[in-house]
Nucleic acid binder design. Structure first.
Lengths: 253, 253
DNA sequence: CGCAAAGTTGACAGGACTCAAACGAGGTGG
DNA sequence: CCACCTCGTTTGAGTCCTGTCAACTTTGCG
């Protein structure tokens, strides 16, 4: 099992037939034929360490990934180092689709925890589009879902106050996590630092800290063991004036 | 020609064979067969007035549009009326794809100028995916392009200063406009108000006005006749530390 | 001519940033 | 086992950026 840069590639441990994610109610049923195809083109699995870079801006990755387990975040940098986190990736999410379609990666992805990724060659996309229109549709749907999340984040950063933003972000992440079974223990622990929150909300670290403290003082969250725990998810949503995810079952490639 | 709410539907004036956009160097060549299909499923044309609402959040539109001419913007509202503009639409852009894929619209679209739209039934998508994998790929590509633009806007709002944001926004819009031949006259006139800029950048109207004034004082733009003119597009990019669009030719559905 | 919409300006308040320092927990080496 | 380092979090002080309020100007239009 070769290992470098916190990444180690292995051949398959999971067949798509016994995928641990697919049974979750968040994902739609697949046709037998679709499952066979996905299983065929799955190339292997990639384990990445916490803190490792999965994809880097400017590169041309030959691969496309689906998160099997673990958390990651997607970000861009300005030339002077200012960082903006665009979104988070969790089990069932596709990583690297933009790069696969458009050539060069326009953002980087870094692991927030140890992760296990399903690996696909980007080259399979044309074949998938030719032979499996249902899956092709699913991929567009997934891209569209990401766009919808970005719209929400943009609304948040642009028009919510610091306190509302923080409440929205934490409610958003924890809602998504719940749909993919990351709520093993209660309350759910989100493996991010306050610096991540700051870089997502467009705030400074110091001000983010003071804002998070207000959420704690209101009894909405806890912050401990280097992560965030949600106490009152409804309270967060109310504070942020956020309606919730409102998602149907989605495809899992 | 029925007309209501600033919208009037007409049967086709343009066949896809003599589409005024397709010859532009920004768009890739289409296969004869693809062109025939698009021409077949094009249902008609819709003219909308400046200020009219093309699509509204929460609705389920039966249609999908391609902008033939004119400008629009895409936005979301918070419950108390705060508005965030996500992006702008110009000739060649698809409007309503998100709603077509996911059911309900999650944002609204309003015309910034008189527009002419090509109309498609959302129902054609499954057929398109089944019979025309190349076009299906194109649609995913277009969704991915939108995502890339949103990433850039998010980076801007989150991490650029007010002055940099304004410079970026205007440079971004004018770059896009140039690629679709909206630079008939020089300098190009962007038909937006300062309120639009404010709602895009996440700033107040008053502060936006003062920021725009700084750009004018630096000789980078003019603001007149209810719109923005770019004087020094390189200067804007430099101020915003923005690399430019860097786009290949793209599909036009 | 008068109204409405868009743009401009000044004063002031408050939110957010920077600087700087300290604290706590976990890991490592002596 | 303790000293020491690092990383993440916390706090306070002062400054500046941005928002709000309010009034005024300009432009376009009926």
């Amino acid at each position: 099992m070769p290992s470098q840069n916190g990444r180690s590639f292995s051949t398959r441990r999971y067949s798509c037939d016994n995928c641990p994610l697919r049974p979750l109610p968040a994902f739609r049923e697949f046709e037998k034929e679709e499952l066979v195809f996905v299983n065929t083109v799955k190339k292997g699995e990639l384990a990445v360490d916490k803190g490792a870079t999965v994809l880097v801006e400017g590169s041309r990755s030959a691969h496309l990934y689906t998160v099997l387990s673990g958390w990651a975040f997607r970000y861009k940098l300005l030339s002077d180092g200012r960082r903006q986190i665009m979104n988070y990736s969790m089990p069932g999410d596709l990583i690297g689709l933009q790069g696969s379609l458009m050539g060069e990666m326009q953002h980087s992805v870094e692991a927030l925890s140890p992760m296990l990724l399903c690996v696909f060659d980007r080259e399979v996309l044309p074949e998938l589009y030719r032979g499996h229109p249902g899956l092709a549709y699913d991929i567009t749907w997934i891209a569209s879902r990401e766009e919808r999340m970005l719209d929400e984040n943009l609304l948040s950063i642009g028009r919510r106050t610091a306190l509302e933003r923080a409440a929205y972000l934490i409610a958003f992440i924890s809602s998504r996590a719940k749909t993919v079974g990351l709520n093993g223990r209660t309350p759910l622990q989100i493996p991010i630092t306050q610096q991540h929150v700051a870089d997502t909300l467009g705030l400074s670290l110091v001000h983010t800290n003071k804002t998070i403290r207000k959420l704690m003082d209101r009894g909405l969250i806890h912050w401990r063991d280097g992560g965030c725990e949600v106490i009152d998810s409804e309270g967060l949503k109310e504070l942020a004036r956020w309606e919730g995810l409102n998602e149907d079952r989605r495809p899992l490639i």
